[in-house]
Design a protein around this nucleic acid. Structure first.
Lengths: 298, 298
DNA sequence: TGGTTGTTTTTTATCGATAAGAGGAAGCTA
DNA sequence: TAGCTTCCTCTTATCGATAAAAAACAACCA
């Protein structure tokens, strides 16, 4: 049976809105809530029904108002708010990055299914999706080959990344001065300097900033294949860094400085300077990744 | 239930080997056959069992020899030798390229499943696999969005293709003179001139040659992401050209000449000449694709 | 002993069923 | 009559089952 994670997540979201006082007086209409929460009205109604049932809201002649205060115990546990597919993803990445999975290992759908507690179908769908990341290969009627999160992988990944990024940065710098992206870049620049000031406590925030920055550069000259490739990068880094916290603050601090140099290079519109700043940044990103691979490979 | 297409295809293959006299005297061992046909021994045994049952081979004291002649009616029909997954692929591509599918259409798993006569699961797996081609987008809990085989798509595809190919061609030309790939290139060159002579009747053979050529260029400096991208190209072209036979002979003839110029440029190792030849060839490939899109778009 | 063939176990490909979720039609109310 | 809600239908996410195919094991033999 399908999980009701959409409902539970929406419920938690609504509970938080109530608690934070974002929903005072008469509540918005179902349609309005639907828009705010990004789910269907069917789900909104289910949430409202349960909220009413628990007296977190009161319904009087069709008008809804907030009810008793929200308690911590009203929330559904986090584990129940992620779909099976997401669970599979997380467990698989953990399995892969834990490091005890050697390149060349073959992957068994049934075994993973049992291990992760899902039907084989879910595993297979994940593996198909994941195979575009270049770490897996399917051999029909036989199974999957895990090619390994190896040095080769990192080198090939970065070769492409550099090509794409140089291309995008170049095109970015040649936009009209009136392009709104320059403004966005300026905003991002400020966010970087702000983060740098608070680096001691907030260094975790860098990864979000990093993502925004690189995606912004691609925005000037969209290409779906480059975007897709950047999805791979984000995905890999997202999970990889969950497993490699080593030196995180220092790394992020260095990266922020590189970003700032890179942003200024873009603003200068000087092609050579841009290329230098871009290569410098990607070069150290690559080094970081490579170094962590060696740690895993012992 | 799983289809027995692997068995049926293997059976047909074995029947052809018998008919063509590739299997005279004592037949090879099960293991040897297994290797030749690329299936498991389980399947080989099933095939041998059926061959014996139909008296196409005779088994005497553990030694197998050819039996009565193979008739046309012994073969399983082609339709029974492709897996469901392949069927889905073919039907979907037909559905897509037939041209009555507008960009922005949303795709309904259930409807396609009924239309193609498979379970929804099969459709979904195909769509997941296919989504890396940049023509589809998944919206969770909702369905798939068909983005369309449009001009944008072709432009973005070729932008990447040019980047990758210039890079690979450049690296190819800088290989050591002793690299065996030069020899392979020479062989391919001859194949091209041969085909050119027989172009009137054999122009269909070009697509195989085209594939071999572009893959060879990538061989000098392998990168899995570039290989994957080339898979997309091959796939798209494979199906697209089934639907666009217009001017095929002429197009292929022109492409062969471009390939020859390109090959000679590589052999000259002159970077500028290579770049020119490469761009010229990809430019006209792009034009061909674009022109056919316009035809489809009426 | 390396290579055969016969047998059993394991895994993949594929189907069908069902609860959760999305979305539309029609009626309701202010 | 515009926006809301109730009711209903259709679709997706997920499970479990099973025949085909692969792989592992066992027995045999020259």
């Amino acid at each position: 049976m399908r999980t009701d994670t959409v409902y539970k997540k929406a419920f938690n979201r609504a509970a938080s809105m109530l608690r934070d006082g974002q929903l005072t007086g008469d509540l918005p209409s179902e349609n309005e809530l639907r828009r705010q929460m990004g789910v269907s009205r069917t789900t909104v109604r289910k949430v409202l029904g349960e909220l009413a049932h628990r007296e977190l809201i009161a319904e009087r002649s069709g008008v809804r108002t907030a009810g008793r205060p929200v308690e911590d115990s009203d929330y559904y546990p986090d584990a129940e708010t992620t779909s099976r597919a997401k669970h599979v993803e997380q467990q698989f990445m953990e399995w892969m990055l834990r490091g005890d999975t050697r390149p060349g290992t073959s992957i068994n759908e049934l075994e993973l299914a049992r291990q992760f507690g899902v039907a084989t179908n879910g595993i297979r769908e994940f593996l198909i999706r994941f195979s575009r990341f270049g770490l897996l290969e399917k051999r029909p009627n036989t199974g999957w080959l895990f090619k390994g999160f190896t040095e080769d992988f990192a080198l090939e990944l970065f070769e492409i990344r550099v090509m794409f990024e140089l291309r995008s940065a170049h095109l970015f710098s040649r936009q009209a001065d009136t392009s709104p992206l320059w403004e966005k870049l300026a905003v991002l620049k400020i966010a970087h300097t702000e983060l740098l000031k608070r680096i001691e406590s907030r260094f975790h925030d860098f990864s979000g900033l990093d993502n925004r920055f690189h995606r912004l550069i691609n925005e000037a000259s969209p290409n779906r294949f480059i975007d897709d490739f950047y999805d791979i990068i984000s995905f890999i880094f997202h999970y990889h860094y969950q497993w490699n916290k080593h030196d995180e603050k220092q790394r992020n601090q260095a990266a922020i400085l590189e970003h700032l140099a890179y942003i200024e290079a873009l603003e200068s519109r000087d092609p050579e300077r841009i290329e230098r700043a871009c290569r410098a940044h990607l070069g150290s990103a690559r080094e970081t990744l490579m170094r962590s691979l060696i740690v895993f490979d012992e």
